[in-house]
Design a protein around this nucleic acid. Sequence first.
RNA 1: GCCCUUGUAGUUCAAUGGAUAGAACAGAGCUCUUCUAAGGCUUUGAUGUAGGUUCGAUUCCUGCCAGGGGCACCA
Length: 560
Amino acid sequence: MIRNILEKSIKQALSTLDIKEGKIILEHPEEITNGDYSCNIAMILAKQVAKNPRELAEKIVAEINKNLPKEISKVEVAGPGFINFYLSPEFFVDENRKILKEEKEFGRSKIGKGKKVIVEYSSPNIAKPFTIGHLRSTVIGDAIANILDFSGYEVIRDNHLGDWGTQFGKLIVAIKNWSSIEKIQKSAEPIKDLVALYVKFHDEAEKDLALDNEARDWFTKLENGDKEAKNIWNICVKLSLKEFEKIYERLGVKFDTAYGESFFEKKMQEVLKDINKLKLAKESEGAYLIFFKDDKYPPMMVLKKDGSTIYALRDLATDKFRKEKYGKDVVIINEVGMEQSLHFQQVIEAEKLLGYSNGHDRIHVKHGFYRFPEGKMSTRKGNGIWLEEVLDEAVEKAKVFDKDTAEAVGIGAIKFNDLKRESSKDIIFSWDEALNLKGDSGPYLQYSYARAKSILRKAKEEKIKKVDWKKIQENEATNLEKILYRFPEVVERAGAEYSPHYIATYLIELASAFNNFYGQGKIVDKTDSNSPYKVALTEAFSIVLKNGLNLLGIQAPEKM
RNA sequence: GCCCUUGUAGUUCAAUGGAUAGAACAGAGCUCUUCUAAGGCUUUGAUGUAGGUUCGAUUCCUGCCAGGGGCACCA
């Protein structure tokens, strides 16, 4: 990569000047007129060498100039002591050529070669609505998995279904009291019925305290393999999975594995044995919990006072299983909401104590809530917005422009709206914002892609010649070229920080540069000798944009 | 009470300790006989507050103010 060439150049200059090198940071200046890369090393080292920063920078530049790599056309000192690098036109031409050659492989790297990673995401709860709240984990987790896969990791995508827990006791009680499992099976909208029952349970339980105990009993029965309980549970799981499948299909999300929590039911005893062996847990108020040294975190419950298990223990069992199945070096990433931060800190700490984890192989990627003016949404109160309705509405809105691509565009809009921001922050949900088809949006990217494709079709019709790479004489690279080559490093950063939004914001910048390029004059023009190169550039743009959209899980329509 | 997290134009978001804090939407003004106007161009407008560290702070540290989340039998 070009970064390495620049770094080497700087290092060489520093060593001839006999300066102990500091950390070399290369960044892109915000103003593109300030060069393609900028280095602040002189300002950092100035004090150490007792020189003023500009003076030092000048010396470094003089050294670099003595042995200037062909990729660099100019190096200069600017501002308080920045060293700015201007890449040569030949470099950009070479990059474009590379993009056309590598096509959908452009941006792929081997950073993660030989490393395995499990990305756990989406993880909806059985018999609960798939709301817009689940969208975040689904979409962000999927993008992270795509990015890591593209970076050479062996990625296992796991949907950790919430198919176990006291909630099922509640559901069984509700079904038995106010409906029947047969009725639900016949229903046109079984999940909505189940949710309604769940909500009703909570309303009734406020008046009738006996219901909660009944629910606990039924969950215990379920854990003990009671036939009736198991049957109801099985049906609920099947109905839910069918519903989820529809959503995943529309979102274009796939999983490699979907071990529900129930799968770990029998594996928890082993974890308990490990805990006991190391004497990590103590009894308190009838329950059984792990206490942390110096109260680093609040104690974590593993068994309830009635002896039944709780999700913390299931999570430990899950990770123990993963380490056994995929090897102890596997990295586990949980894409789960912020509100579970403490839980994951506790789980990870416990896994360190248990020897399941070294502490670096367990990562909680957090995301904020979708927030509404009324406050945090809650399935319990029944005011969550169903994702299906949001998708339908988005698709409906997209039909105004083009019916054929409405599904891809509407869903692209929703996904991009989620992915474009740093995930840890809350999203204040507004229909206008989420369904926005203008500006910094998924449709803007898709539109730009379709437009580029249209130009390429036209170029073919007009029989524009292929570029003769040897004959290209460029004096000044376009802004589009100055952004295109950065894709691989953006992917690298997005992967390193588990942050798809870097790709999202990059793609917007890229598409803007292209649209500006488009606005500057004809691309397909037989009378223009530069036309072949402009067409090649358009193609390079379409390739990079498509690769980027793929990573975000957003479709790129050929026509719109 | 303790812990975590967030405060950037009217609004929604960017910004690897760097240069004149970028976009988009909304507002004002241009721009389709031309490969897609879901576009392009111009323009108005912002770092909650008080300190500290630093050559340099939206970014790091401390206090305060304001939002959000979590803290034992839900997941």
